[in-house]
Computed example of a mutant assay.
Amino acid sequence: MIVAPLRARREVLGAVTLARMPPHPALTGDELTLVEDLVHRVALSVDKARLHRETEHIAERLQRSLLPDLPKVDHLTMAARYTPSHATAEVGGDWYDSFVLPTGATTLIIGDVTGHDLRAAVATELLPPRLLYTDGLIERRGESLEHGMTRLRQHAAALAHTHPAELCEELIAGLAPHNTDDVAVLALRLPLAGQ
C-alpha cells in the first residue's frame, strides 16, 4: 500500500492511497515514478481549482463592496441587485447608484464600464415599477436583442406588482440563472397617483 500526499505550494491538500491486492505484485520502481507524477498532477489540479474558487469569491466580494446602499426616499421604494458572471473570476464592470440631488430629485444610474450597450428602462407607462438594467440581463449568444427585450418585458409585466427587491431577484433568477456576463438591476416603484 502507498499513501502519497497531494502537495502544492508547500501545503498538503489531501492524500492518495494506492494498494495492490494479492495475487498482483507490489508496485515497481517505474510504476512508483508514474504514481508520483500522477499524484503531483492531481495536486496541481486541486490547487488550481481551489485558487480559482478563492479568486471568484474575492472578485465578487470586491465588486459588491463597490456598490452603494440606495438612499431612503419617503415616497419611493427602491431595490437593486448585482450578480456576477458565472463564466469569469474577474471583477465585473456592471454598477448602479442612486442619490438625492440638492433639489430633492432622486437620481438613478446604472452602467457597464466595459462599454457594452447600456439598455435602460423597460417598463411601459402602464407598469408601476421603473427598471434599469445592464446588458447581461437580456443578451444571449446567438439571439437577437429584440428577443431578449421581449422576454424581459414579459417577465417584468408578470412581476409588475411585486416589491422592487423581489422584482430584481426574480428577473435575475428567471432571465440570467447561468449568466456569462455580470448583471446589475435597479428597480424603482413610484407612488400611485394621489399618494
Results as ranks from 00 to 15, higher is better:
133 Y>V: 11
118 L>M: 09
51 L>K: 09
126 L>H: 12
12 V>P: 03
148 G>T: 06
165 A>T: 07
78 M>F: 00
106 T>E: 01
40 H>W: 11
22 P>W: 12
83 T>V: 13
160 A>T: 06
58 I>P: 01
174 G>L: 06
37 D>T: 15
36 E>N: 09
111 G>M: 00
14 G>K: 02
7 R>C: 11
32 L>I: 12
93 G>A: 05
95 W>I: 10
189 R>L: 11
181 D>K: 03
182 D>L: 08
1 M>Q: 14
106 T>F: 01
10 R>L: 13
62 L>S: 07
52 H>D: 14
193 A>Q: 14
134 T>A: 06
105 A>F: 10
171 L>M: 10
74 D>K: 08
60 E>H: 00
94 D>M: 03
48 K>T: 14
37 D>Q: 14
89 A>L: 09
96 Y>G: 09
176 A>R: 01
43 A>R: 07
123 A>C: 11
134 T>H: 04
125 E>M: 11
89 A>F: 10
100 V>P: 00
160 A>Y: 05
121 A>H: 12
57 H>T: 11
190 L>E: 05
76 L>C: 01
118 L>H: 07
115 G>V: 06
129 P>R: 03
88 T>V: 11
173 A>E: 08
191 P>G: 08
112 D>G: 05
123 A>P: 01
10 R>Q: 14
30 D>C: 11
60 E>Q: 02
67 L>M: 02
180 T>A: 12
63 Q>W: 04
150 T>H: 12
90 E>H: 13
185 V>Q: 04
169 E>K: 05
127 L>G: 04
160 A>E: 10
171 L>I: 09
6 L>V: 03
